[in-house]
Design a protein around this nucleic acid. Structure first.
Length: 644
RNA sequence: GCCGGGUUAGCUCAGUUGGCAGAGCAUCUCUCUUGUAAAGAGAAGGUCGUCGGUUCGAAUCCGACACCCGGCUCCA
């Protein structure tokens, strides 16, 4: 019996039944076979040494692709587990999958791993790699597997899970054996441990079994594995690069904000330069919202317990709220974790007509959330932050159009800040934990999906991840080094209009219930600044740079003219500073470059005489001399103008 | 909240077995008057996160708390 394989280029080849993937790869080319870690046959990935017994599309998975690296990493995880079980008798092990850029494995050794343990494990792994053990696949029945792993409670739990999830042709499980080490695993794996050329253990941490904080906490070891030493080095350099972009570090270096420990966890103070950056962002936000049919409102930071009771926050969100303050003889007040109830009160301040809808109330609303102590992370996860928050009150009929408008608006805003790659998550209903009619949910989910499709935004459906009151879209951006950040959120809300008994008079003069859309575009100004800092590595677009131009006098006698030039820039709307310090020109240039100032102007004798300047722009370090001051002012004032 | 690691000058970090607290950068002063990524000299700067304990003696050992970092869980 022969098998027929279709290669990616469309050519067909026939082989004896039982030919292995490696043999096919070798037949195609020796180089390909050398780089191969697995093959894909008819949509299924197989070990190289597994006989192929069916026809279909065939491709070779090579070690320098993400799919191939996942195979390497998965195998590295096995080797790590083998090393741990060797070194720590009685250890139990749970799961060890490949992840982005690496792998991990969860263990229970009765105590945490120490850095020294990590060294020993890595050394043992190297030994295992050097003896080049082969990975051998076997298939077992559920009962056989349960017996084989009887001392491994996590493994038996997984096996029972496979048993219950039968269907998909799983009446048994596969295991991979290298030497005395056996692990439950679907595969595929590399043919032998010697294929691991560049493995490094990175860190340890606690991790809950099955990600559930009510289950026991295991000890996780993270590692990384690459096809060769060079790729590993490149990855480690990338980590260093990311560290240099860290917004907490750059916040100090650029004097933007800080997190004084006297203040408290998760709380930032904004220094003058950070304050200016924020102000630019907030001004932009207010301007564009006003230009897009929003009405600007303001609400206080605290409200009585009753309001939070009505809104459902005390029932559903109490954990995220700061504890109550008692005022006025027992009256309880809460600091706001969200702005919605206030906007609802504005809506309710008088009776509303369908003619006013959609009513879009917008606020830069500062909220406080009691984040658990282990989760705060600079500006990206703070306890106090300001949302560019709006609540849109719309009729059910207008909801679809409004969502489309909204999505266009979101993308415009994000693009204005320099992001151009987006992905969305559409979170749908969890029937167990939600309110509202099926019809409304379905309409809402369809409307969200339609809006996403019309905006040509790639999205994934997150089943059951919607909030209890409605489905939502979360928008993620990709930054300059490919990381994904969640910024915008758009949530439909059927609950609050009910809770607060919101109505409007329809054209037929009937009381109808509006739908609320809760949305934040930047998300929170704090997080947004954090993401911007990391995206631009602190070199903000000129319109956002706290200092847009530095004027450097060559010697003391040029200082007066330098201030004149700075004043001219200021009059042209450019934020300019004079660096009149008693330092060399080289040092002053260096300081401005380090501070990522977009434009540096140098003025000396000839400039004073001819009313000119020397100019050096951040984007290229070539200097120009003798440019007319007036022209430079006009150019820079264009360069520093906000996008709208 | 959980697991682990931390906290020494404004910043980055040394500090040996428990025995007088250190460097570089930044700051201040003076000299130099500078043309595109660090001029020279000097000075000042510390409750060693906080509180308690052990000790003749604690930055160093122990405990609690605060804050930070890496994860888990959670999330804008």
């Amino acid at each position: 019996m022969s098998i027929h394989l279709t290669l990616p280029d469309g050519t067909q080849r026939a082989y004896e039944g039982g030919t292995t993937g490696y043999e096919v790869a070798s037949d195609i080319g020796a180089g390909l076979a050398k780089a191969a870690v697995a093959v894909s046959v008819d949509g299924e990935t197989l070990d190289l040494n597994r006989p192929i017994d069916r026809d279909g599309a065939f491709s070779v998975i090579t070690e320098n692709t993400e799919e191939g690296r996942a195979v390497l990493r998965h195998s590295a995880a096995h080797v790590m587990a083998q090393a741990v079980l060797d070194l720590f008798p009685g250890a139990t092990f749970a799961i060890g999958p490949p992840i982005t850029d690496g792998f991990y494995y969860d263990f229970d050794i009765g105590r945490p791993f120490t850095p020294e343990d990590l060294d020993r494990i890595e050394t043992r792994m190297q030994e295992i790699i050097e003896i080049n053990q082969s990975f051998d696949r076997e298939e077992l029945s559920i009962d056989e597997a349960l017996e084989m792993f009887e001392d491994q409670p996590f493994k038996t739990e997984i096996i029972r899970g496979v048993d219950e999830a039968e269907g998909a042709g799983t009446d048994g499980v596969s295991i991979y054996r290298n030497d005395a080490f056996v692990d439950l695993c679907r595969g595929p794996h590399i043919s032998s441990t010697g294929r691991l050329k560049a493995v490094k253990l990175m860190r340890t941490s606690g991790a809950y079994w099955r990600g559930d904080e009510n289950k026991p906490q295991l000890q996780r070891i993270y590692g990384t594995a690459w096809e060769n030493r060079k790729a590993l080095r490149t990855y480690l350099n990338r980590l260093e690069e990311a560290e240099k972009r860290d917004h907490r570090r750059l916040g100090v270096e650029l004097d933007l904000y800080s997190f004084p420990s006297d203040l408290g966890s998760g709380l930032a103070v904004w220094h003058p330069k950070g304050g200016l950056l924020r102000k630019e962002i907030e001004d932009y936000s207010r301007r564009t919202h006003l230009a897009h049919g929003y009405e600007y409102v303001v609400s206080p930071h605290v409200a009585k317990a009753d309001l939070w009771q009505t809104s459902g926050h005390l029932d559903f969100y109490a954990e995220g709220m700061y504890p109550a303050m008692e005022l006025d003889g027992g009256q309880q007040y809460y600091v706001k974790p969200m702005n919605c109830p206030f906007h609802i009160l504005i809506y309710k301040s008088r009776s509303r007509s369908y003619r006013e809808l959609p009513l879009r109330l917008f606020e830069l609303g500062t909220v406080y959330r009691y984040e658990r102590s282990g989760v705060v992370h600079g500006l990206l996860r703070a306890r106090g932050f300001t949302q560019d928050d709006s609540h849109i009150f719309t009729t059910v009929d207008d909801m679809g159009d409004e969502l489309q408008r909204l999505l266009d608006f979101v993308l415009m805003v994000l693009r204005d800040f320099g992001f151009d790659e987006f992905e969305a998550d559409l979170s749908t209903r969890d029937p167990e934990k939600s309110i509202g009619s099926d019809e409304l949910w379905e309409l809402a989910e369809i409307s969200l999906a339609k809006a996403l499709e019309r905006a040509q935004l790639p999205y994934q459906i997150a089943h059951g991840e919607g909030s209890f009151y409605g489905p939502k879209i979360d928008i993620h951006v990709k930054d300059a080094i490919g990381r994904r950040w969640q910024l915008s959120t758009i949530q439909l809300d059927f609950a609050q209009p009910e809770n607060f008994n919101l109505t409007y008079a329809s054209s037929g003069n009937v009381r109808e219930r509006p739908v609320m859309i809760h949305r934040a575009l930047l998300g929170s100004v704090e997080r947004f600044v954090g993401v911007l800092v990391e995206h631009y590595a602190g070199a903000f677009p000129a319109w956002l740079a706290p200092v847009q131009a530095t004027v450097v006098p060559v010697a003391d006698r040029h200082t007066e003219y330098a201030f004149e030039a700075a004043a001219a820039l200021g009059a042209g709307g450019v934020r300019a500073e004079v660096d009149a310090a008693d330092e060399t020109v080289g040092e002053k240039i260096r300081r401005s470059i380090t501070q990522k100032v977009p434009a540096i102007l140098v003025v000396g004798d000839r400039d004073v005489e001819g009313r000119t300047v020397g100019l050096r722009l951040r984007e290229n370090d070539e200097e120009q001399r003798g440019l007319s001051l007036d022209e430079v002012v006009s150019d820079l004032s264009g360069l520093c103008a906000p996008p709208r």
